[in-house]
Structures are given as structure tokens and as C-alpha cells.
Computed example of a mutant assay.
Amino acid sequence: MNIRKKWIIYGIGLPLVLGGCVNMDNANGNGVDEKKNTKDAVEDQSDRLVTVQEYNGEGFYLENGQENDKIAEANREEVEKAVTDFFLEQYKTDVEVHNIVGNVDGASVFVESIGKPNFHTYAVVPIDAKGKKILTDQVYSLEGEVENAITSGVYGLVYEDEFNELDKVLAEITSDYPFTGETTQAINNTKSFGFGNEYYFVSFFDMELSQQIVERYLENPDLSKEEIKELNLEKLNPKSINITIQLFKNKKDSNPTNEELDEIAKVIDEAEGLPYGAYNLLLHDNMIGKASGSGDKDNTVERADPDYIIKK
């Protein structure tokens, strides 16, 4: 799976480095190695999977982070303050801390911006494991991670009406077809995808324009839609803006079909008033991996890069 497709499926910036060394072969994007031996493959998976309706992020973890997770939880107030101060100082953004997960070097802290623009992202708080000390003066984010989340959030704000229309279309789809989205708790506790909700998230791939948006945001976090529209986002190649829709079957032991994929893709393709961009559509079964927070499996069906649904 190439890096662009990983971003499409799992959310901007989430793969590879949620604050530490991870296995480059893992496919879930959260540092969890899903390679299993033959015995594991045939064992009952009930202890590793949970229905999408029940999943709230419990059991989510990052590789080699168990010890640091304990240290971070024992010092939760200190970790939360360090992260909220970091976002306020570096990005002029008030955030709410949703989840703290130990990683090999410290703790990855999942946050959501307070107010608009709305986005999910994370920062890393290093930990001196030997001294069991929280290094509050060394908080950092992966290069481009928060910036991409901000750009995604600003795009969601500028096209707020169009995204409201997309929400209505997806609500109708999940009413007409046996599908549902993720829980709010799962999103808060396991995702760093920028702007999105239980059905979709937005990824921005024009780095030059992203930098312009972030610069304007840092100058004035309360910037208006009109100020951003001055950048002429409509002139972008729609493939520079990916809107990834992920739906889950609403009942156990039920797999998505290619027929359902084609029908739902047609509904989205024919819908009017949706946000500008290139749409990826992924249909999963009803189960999510507890540790990875991912629903992607061999039975997932998708219409994605390069076969986008283009909305202009």
C-alpha cells in the first residue's frame, strides 16, 4: 500500500510515526503489527475485534508503549496541560484532550480543536521512562501533521454548507442501505484525520496552498470564510482534496458487496451541492480491530485512488 493510499484510508499523518519507531510493514497505520502466525489466523477473533457500534477506542494501543502509557496515565493532568499549552502557543488553538496513548518514546495525545475550524490531530509528549518523568518542555508534533489538520478544518469551515449537504446524503444512504458510521468516542480516541465525522474525513494534498492557509490561520485563527475564499480554492485540481467516506455494515456477520458499492457510489456521484474534491468510498463489514482502530480487511470493497468520484 503506497503512502498516499495509507493517508486516504487511515487519515492524514496517522501512519508510521505516532511518536516512535513502528513496523513499516503494518497496514493499519497506528503502529500495530497485524502480522499473525498460522495459529493466530485460525483462532477465534472475538478478543481482537468489536462491532463498530460498540467500539469506543478501548484497547487501542501503539507498539512498545505499554510502560509509557502507565507513566502518562499516572501523570495525566501534567500531560494534558503540556499539550494544551503547546497547541495554544504554537498554533493559537484551544484544544480538548480526548485520549493519551503510550508509545515507544512517550505518549501520543489525541486532541480536538475547540470551536471552528474543527479538526482532530495529536501531539507527542516525550517521557523519561527510567526517571518516570514527563518532559513537558519538549512536546512536539510530526512535521506537517497539525498543519494538515488545520488546512482540513479550514476547508471544512469554508464549505460548511456543502458538507452539511454531504451529511444529509450520507444520512439518507445509511437509512436506505444497511450501513452505519463510527462512534464519536472512537473518532475522538483513535483518529487524527483533521476535519471529519463518523462517515468521512478530508485530506489536503496541495502543500503550497496548505501553507498559505496555515499562515493566514496563524495570523488570525478567527479568519472568515471570505478571507480563505480569496485563495480561489475552486481552481485546485479536485484530486488535491480527498474526501474519504468509510461506511460499516450495521449487522454482524454481514459483508459489503460490490453491488452495494456501485449503488452508493452512484448516489454520491449524482448528488448535487456536495463539497469540491475527489471522493474515495470504502465499505467495511461490521467489525473493527480493537488495537488498530481500523475496519479495513480483505472483505472491504472500495472505489478509491485512482478511480475517484470527482465533484467539481
Rank of each mutant, 00 (worst) to 15 (best):
W7Y: 09
G13T: 05
L16K: 00
L16F: 09
L16H: 04
L18K: 04
V22E: 10
N23Q: 13
M24H: 09
D25M: 08
A27V: 09
G29C: 06
N30T: 15
G31L: 11
D33P: 03
E34W: 05
E34Q: 13
K35Q: 07
K35R: 14
K35L: 06
D40M: 02
S46G: 13
V50T: 14
Q53D: 15
E54Y: 06
Y55V: 05
Y55E: 08
G57V: 07
Y61T: 14
L62I: 15
L62G: 01
G65R: 06
N68C: 09
D69H: 15
E73R: 14
N75Q: 13
R76Q: 14
E78A: 14
E78G: 08
V79Q: 08
E80V: 15
E80F: 12
F86T: 11
T93V: 04
T93W: 02
D94M: 00
D94W: 00
V97M: 10
H98W: 11
N99P: 11
V104G: 05
V104H: 01
F110Q: 01
K116C: 05
P117I: 12
F119G: 01
T121Q: 09
A123P: 04
V124N: 07
I127L: 10
G131S: 10
K133R: 14
K133D: 11
I134E: 12
L135T: 02
L135E: 15
Q138G: 03
E147N: 13
N148M: 13
T151V: 15
G156P: 12
G156Q: 11
L157I: 09
D161F: 05
F163W: 12
E165N: 14
L166C: 13
V169F: 04
L170I: 15
L170E: 10
E172N: 14
I173S: 08
D176N: 15
G181H: 07
T183I: 06
T183A: 06
Q185L: 14
A186R: 03
N189C: 03
N189M: 06
T190D: 04
T190H: 04
S192K: 05
S192I: 11
F193T: 07
G196M: 02
E198I: 13
F201R: 04
S203D: 13
S203F: 03
E208G: 09
L209W: 06
S210A: 15
Q211H: 08
Q211G: 07
I213L: 02
V214N: 04
Y217H: 13
L218G: 05
L218C: 05
P221N: 03
P221Q: 03
S224E: 10
K225F: 00
K225Q: 06
L236G: 02
N237Q: 02
I243T: 14
I245S: 10
Q246I: 08
Q246G: 04
K249H: 09
D253P: 05
N255G: 01
N255V: 10
P256F: 02
P256T: 00
E259N: 12
E259K: 11
L261N: 08
V267E: 01
V267Q: 00
V267S: 01
I268H: 07
D269W: 03
D269S: 14
A271Q: 02
A271H: 02
E272A: 08
G273Q: 09
G277M: 05
L281D: 04
G289T: 11
S292A: 15
G293Q: 09
G293K: 07
D296E: 11
N299A: 05
V301M: 11
V301S: 08
A304M: 09
D307P: 00
